[in-house]
Design a binder for these strands. Structure first.
Lengths: 145, 145
DNA sequence: AAAGTTGAAACAACTATGATTACAACTTTA
DNA sequence: TAAAGTTGTAATCATAGTTGTTTCAACTTT
């Protein structure tokens, strides 16, 4: 089980927009080239980021732009934007525990708060990092090359 | 994306073993009835828990038993036993970033420590809860019914 | 010897992910 | 205004992963 690669693709895309915007038109085709991901997938991800208010794109004109400052975009915002985890939550509870069994009808309730805590721990960690930090690290690594 | 339900099934199974062992033979068939999950799946999960040293089962005789004290089994042990997340990690990095692009060839390095931190936060939370607590809560809820 | 059980392999059904094709709508530029 | 390039979106496909099901050999108990 793995969280969809759309998450890392989205971070890659946003880093590219910050890095190349102004120098060239950052189109879905260009981003497809940098990420190695199909251009239609890139456009889908860009659409999700646009719906979340993270980027701006327009039909026809071409070229994506950031809609927010780098330090106002957390990894959690991106993770939410690309729908890594749906409303059901990160953990998948088996759906037909036997209500005639005392364990079966109560185990869900007994586990729920723990599963929530684990998922929240993951998400809080993602909230604590902004895109500004990822971009800064990327630039630093590039400068040291 | 969701973590396989084998994880919650495993916790359910272990709680049942603690609850019913001694009163009856806790077979894969019985556990299938309580969880609502196919008996073959139950046997697969039991096999993984056995490999991890968490339960004891034997061919022929029937009836699973705990191999450790409840407070020596963390949710993380179970999560590891049933292989919720493989060696690749929780996050799935897109596999063909373009090495000719400065962002493409460095973004992985720039993100890795953050993704690891998020995964570790999840796992540490799971390590902090033992089966003893889940079982205690389950028993408490049953007693209050 | 018979009955019940585990372990494991093989296969089917279903779902999710990501790639691909196709095309309408839109913008820019020549 | 026409052409070229781009986005947005739907439809389809291949592949992989999850869960269920069937089957049967190996084992234990009675």
């Amino acid at each position: 089980m793995q969280i969809t690669s759309k998450f890392t693709v989205a971070v890659h895309i946003l880093t590219c927009i910050d890095f190349f915007d102004g120098q060239m038109r950052v189109t879905s085709d260009f981003l497809s080239g940098s990420t190695g991901v199909n251009a239609v997938i890139v456009r889908n991800v860009l659409g999700q980021l646009r719906n979340a208010g993270i980027v701006e794109t327009r039909q026809g004109s071409g070229g994506a732009h950031l809609a927010k400052a780098l330090d106002e975009i957390t990894l959690y915002d991106i993770y939410k934007a690309v729908d890594c985890v749906d409303d059901e939550g990160l953990f998948h509870f088996h759906e037909n525990p036997n209500v005639d069994c005392p364990v079966g009808r109560n185990i869900h309730k007994a586990m729920d708060s723990r599963l929530d805590a684990a998922q929240t721990a993951l998400e809080n960690e993602l909230k604590s990092t902004t895109l500004a930090e990822v971009v800064a690290d990327t630039r630093k690594i590039i400068d040291e090359e």
